[in-house]
């Protein structure tokens, strides 16, 4: 999936990927897509929940081995 910005959260655990996503999304323009790369399994459930609460759009995820890429549209 194409993204405007990538946030590397490899090696970080809850709550840091979500906290960093929240900080990063502020720097994006409306409609832009943020890619978050994580190896914390929890993000698969946490990111949709975060999007649901904050009103950003969860576009989906791609999983390769331990690496999970999640996509959020501001």
């Amino acid at each position: 999936m194409e993204a405007d910005r990538t946030l590397d959260c490899i090696g970080l655990y809850c709550p840091m990927p979500i906290v960093k996503t929240s900080q990063q999304i502020g720097e994006l323009a409306d409609g832009e897509v943020l890619e978050v790369i994580s190896d914390d399994e929890g993000i698969k459930s946490d990111m949709p929940a975060w999007c649901d609460k904050t009103g950003h759009k969860f576009l989906g995820l791609e999983e390769t081995g331990d690496e999970i890429k999640v996509y959020v549209r501001k």
Binding site: P15, I18, V19, S22, Q23, A49, W50
Partner: peptide, 12 residues
């Protein structure tokens, strides 16, 4: 503090 920080990140 984990919950507090996560909640704040969720706009709460």
């Amino acid at each position: 503090f984990n919950i507090a920080n996560t909640a704040a990140s969720m706009g709460m």
